[in-house]
């Protein structure tokens, strides 16, 4: 293959990565923005989504599309419910103290991961693609499902954007983010908002996982890399800034896809992690966020 088509293929792969990363990082960013806590267990909610997708699609014989539709509805809902209870039973009890929350979510990370290891086992399990359809470019055929992933991610992002900017729920969320105490004085049930935001954040990660699982495979350790990547995205984009998160996810997803085609993946990871740490030290508001959003 020539360089041009090769780059085109790498870009497409990068776009799929970026789309999924957008969803995961948006979940993390929402939680940090509104609740001011870092959820280290975020990657495990993603993993849980993938494992549930494998489980749910197993219920349906016949056309894999039916199982997939069921998985993408039930899976994230279940993960949201689990996250809701985690928030109620644990995070609320430590009063969202930043350090205690990090330690608690590290604990939750281990608990979820190891419970999945016990029940689901250490093997990677495949999930069937809901449909097979190749889009023929002049140089190569490309999986239609991957393009669907990109479209689905864009639609979900638009939906989240609509909810945040145009609905009452979004208004309440923004008010809580802006000033928790004043919001409470105006009669907003801040605790309820926190629980909903935490569940939504986890649900977004789970949706991303259900979308990606027919391309990758479900595995109990699959939450780690997306967690680090979405940390990177949220930091570059500016902690708590949603627009910044999306731009950063696009850049990082794309460049990760393209760079790892041309360079050693370990070196690429090393350099990018180091750069991100430096951004956090010297420009803590992120490259695209502004200080006022923090």
């Amino acid at each position: 293959m020539d360089f041009g088509p090769f780059l085109f293929l790498a870009t497409l792969e990068g776009l799929v990565q970026a789309a999924v990363l957008c969803l995961i990082a948006l979940g993390l960013s929402l939680v940090f923005g509104v609740m001011r806590v870092v959820n280290v267990a975020h990657g495990e909610f993603y993993m849980l989504g993938a494992v549930l997708a494998w489980w749910i699609t197993g219920w349906f014989a016949g056309n894999p599309a039916i199982g997939f539709v069921a998985a993408i509805i039930i899976g994230p809902l279940l993960v949201g419910v689990i996250a809701y209870f985690v928030e109620r039973l644990i995070l609320r009890k430590v009063e969202y103290d930043p350090e205690a929350t990090i330690v608690a979510t590290i604990g939750i990370l281990y608990i979820v991961q190891q419970l999945v290891l016990i029940t689901f086992g250490p093997d990677a399990r495949p999930v069937d693609t809901p449909f097979y359809f190749l889009i023929e470019f002049p140089w190569f055929g490309y999986s239609g499902y991957k393009l669907l992933v990109i479209c689905a991610a864009i639609m979900l992002l638009l939906a989240v954007w609509y909810v945040i900017t145009r609905t009452r729920l979004g208004l309440v969320m923004r008010a809580t983010q802006y000033d928790r105490e004043t919001a409470q004085n105006f009669g907003i049930a801040v605790n309820q908002v926190y629980a909903i935001v935490f569940a939504t954040g986890a649900g977004l990660a789970a949706v991303a996982a259900v979308l990606i699982v027919p391309i990758q495979q479900a595995h109990y350790l699959m939450g780690r890399d997306p967690l680090l990547l979405s940390f990177i995205v949220v930091i570059i984009g500016g902690l708590g800034s949603i627009r910044g998160t999306l731009v950063a996810a696009l850049i990082i997803g794309l460049s990760d896809g393209i760079i790892s085609v041309f360079f050693s993946p370990t070196l690429a990871k090393m350099v990018s992690t180091l750069l991100v740490a430096m951004v956090l030290v010297f420009k803590p508001e992120g490259l695209f966020g502004s200080r006022s959003q923090l």
């Binding site: 608690a104 604990g107 939750i108 990370l109 281990y110 608990i111 991961q113 190891q114």
Partner: peptide, 13 residues
């Protein structure tokens, strides 16, 4: 590691 996770959560709580 499940034990480690449970101990962490109990300690924090």
């Amino acid at each position: 590691l499940l034990v480690a996770g449970i101990v962490l959560v109990i300690l924090v709580l």
